[in-house]
Simulated scan of single mutants.
Amino acid sequence: MTATTPPSLVIDVVDTGDAVLIRVRGEIDLRTGPRLERALAPFHARRCELDLGEVPFTDSTGVNLLVRHHREAARAGGALRLVSVARPVLRILRLTGTDALLLPGGGPLGAQDPS
């Protein structure tokens, strides 16, 4: 029997001075969510732009994490804005109603719209 290694989560942080761009690649789930949480936590008081364009899957762990960071950032004077979202993740955000909270203007992000 051969065990396969699940895809890892890659997080790149680019601090532009005015904002922090956080690019995420890989799946966000119960196993990888804590890594993303640790990456987002230091930036609650900053304006964060989160690129999920290369995230093919998230479960409730990822949705809860995004909502929690959005609220904590607002309390600390920062902000969280999704600048790119892969279609499967956008679908989950729409199904859970969190698209209105996390997407700019509550609407779809250009070409990522699954409609």
Rank of each mutant, 00 (worst) to 15 (best):
G53I: 09
R75A: 15
G77M: 12
R46N: 00
I11K: 08
I28C: 09
R25I: 01
E27A: 10
R47Y: 06
V10I: 14
T98A: 02
G33H: 00
G17K: 15
L52Q: 12
L65C: 06
A86G: 04
R94S: 05
L80E: 04
T58P: 00
L30C: 13
L65E: 04
L21S: 04
V20R: 09
V67S: 00
V20Q: 03
L80I: 14
R71N: 01
G62T: 14
P34Q: 15
E37T: 14
R94V: 08
A45E: 13
C48Q: 13
G33A: 06
V24I: 08
D59N: 03
L9C: 06
D18S: 11
A86T: 09
R91T: 11
I22A: 05
G62C: 02
T61N: 04
P34A: 07
A79L: 06
R31V: 15
S60P: 08
A74E: 14
P34Y: 13
A79H: 11
L21N: 05
C48R: 14
H69Q: 08
V83Y: 12
R71A: 12
E49A: 05
I92H: 04
V63R: 03
T58N: 03
E37D: 15
D29S: 11
G26R: 07
L80H: 12
E27G: 06
L9M: 07
L66I: 03
F43C: 05
E49N: 05
A74G: 07
E27Y: 01
S84C: 06
V24R: 02
V67I: 12
R38P: 09
A41V: 14
E27P: 14
G62K: 08
V67Q: 03
E54N: 08
R87C: 01
T96Y: 11
R23C: 12
G97A: 04
L66H: 10
L9T: 14
D59G: 08
L40I: 12
R91G: 00
D51G: 07
N64K: 09
G33C: 04
A39T: 09
A79N: 04
T58M: 13
E72D: 14
G33I: 11
C48N: 03
L65K: 01
E37H: 10
L21F: 09
E49H: 07
A74M: 09
T96P: 10
A19D: 13
L40T: 09
A39N: 11
A73I: 12
E27N: 11
H44Q: 15
E49Y: 03
E37Q: 15
A39G: 08
R94I: 07
D15C: 00
G53P: 03
R87P: 00
T16R: 15
D12M: 07
R81S: 15
D59T: 08
T98Q: 05
